[in-house]
Each structure stands twice: as C-alpha cells, then as structure tokens.
Design a protein around this nucleic acid. Structure first.
Length: 204
DNA sequence: ACATTAACTGTTA
DNA sequence: TAACAGTTAATGT
C-alpha cells in the first residue's frame, strides 16, 4: 500500500459532486475558531495558515498549507466547532465541498477513502512528533521537529534538499519561540551542520 | 516587509 | 552564577 502524506481529490470529481470554487483575497478568514465545520476545503492556489491566539494574544500557528493540500478535514469527523482559524496568507483559490457530499464520495470511492485515512494518519503521526519537540525546552529540537514535519511532504529526503519557505517570524509562531531565538538557534544549527543557508534561505 | 544585531532583563539549570 | 530565552529598540537587506 502506498502512503499518502498529502490529500488531493481530483478537482473535476469535486466539482461534479457539488464542489464550489471560491476566491479569497490575502488576509481573509476562510473560517474562524468556533465556526461549525460544514465543508471539505482543498487549496487550488495560494497559502492558508491555521492558527489560534492564546490568552495573552500570542499567536500559535498550527500549520501553513499550500497548493493541493486540504485543511480542516479532521474536524468533519468530529461533532465540534473549529478550534482554529483558517486565514489566507496570499490571494487564494480554494474548492469547498459540503461535508455530506464528501461522505458520499468516500462511500463511492474506497480508494479515496483509504487515501484520506492515510493522509490523516500522516498528519496525526507528525503532530505527535511536533508535540514531542515543542514540549522540549531546547529550541533546536523544536525547530528540527518542525522542519522534519514540513520536509515529510516532499519526496526528496536527502540532506539540505528542502528549502524552508517560511519567514523567521512564522517559524517562531509555529514553534512557540521568539524570532530572535529562532535566528540565534538557526545559526547554531548551521554550525552543527544540521542545516545550511543559501542567501538567507534555509535548506534542511 | 523581513532579517539581524545589540544591549538589557529575568529565569533556571 | 553562567547560560540562555525573552524584550526592546535600532539598523541592515
């Protein structure tokens, strides 16, 4: 069985089953914390972040998704409101499919159902890794956890093959660190040879 | 707009 | 008490 790290349902199939294309400007909310999950969302173009704010207003980013990635899927299988916001980081084109239509597709196409299982499992697996690293007091371990997670979506596993296309601030918000700590730690990690820079872009 | 540095503060191993 | 993460602010790309 092949393992799928990233869910993508064929766009035509989505459209012929009630999927709707929606366009968003940059810095729009697609949904907010507390909303009821009613749709399966898949990105055609652009970037979406999933985040929430803690009690003192500090942002925590759960994930940043791009082209061909779905988001919020797991909430469709849980009878609860979203615990996070979906916020566009760039102009976005997404396709949304009503929850019941997704379930029909999953019944009709067992292979897609299996893929979704595989994808969700991948996400859960790496969430566990992320929790373990974020629980560490060591910032290098937190950052490595994040980078291994992000790299797991790409096929090339070799060293320094993955360009981390995140700002230092985003890395900070994904790991619960401060930008300055991220910068200091990245430099340390470069010296330890666990990553390298090519004109400010991180290669992991 | 994002990245870096420096100087300082507070916490903790 | 030395190391190190966070804070603030100024500066560089």
């Amino acid at each position: 069985m092949k393992t799928i790290s990233c869910m993508k349902i064929d766009e035509d199939l989505l459209r012929s089953n009630g999927g709707e294309i929606r366009n968003y400007n940059s810095k729009d909310f697609i949904f907010r914390s507390g909303d009821k999950p009613l749709y399966y969302w898949q990105i055609i173009e652009g970037n979406v972040k999933l985040n929430h704010y803690n009690e003192d207003g500090k942002e925590f980013i759960h994930n940043i998704l791009g082209e061909n990635q779905s988001f919020g899927d797991s909430c469709l299988f849980v009878d609860k409101t979203y615990p996070m916001n979906a916020f566009t980081l760039s102009p976005c084109t997404v396709i949304k499919l009503p929850k019941n239509k997704l379930f029909s597709i999953l019944e009709e196409y067992p292979d897609i159902s299996l893929e979704l299982n595989s994808c969700l499992s991948h996400r859960v697996y790496y969430k566990m890794i992320m929790i373990q690293s974020i629980a560490s007091a060591n910032p290098a371990i937190r950052i490595k956890g994040l980078m291994n997670y992000l790299k797991s979506f790409q096929d090339d596993c070799s060293a320094f093959s993955f360009p981390v296309r995140l700002t230092r601030q985003q890395i900070a918000d994904l790991t619960g660190l401060r930008v300055e700590t991220v910068i200091r730690t990245l430099k340390k990690m470069e010296k330890e040879n666990s990553l390298k820079f090519e004109k400010r872009v991180i290669f992991f």
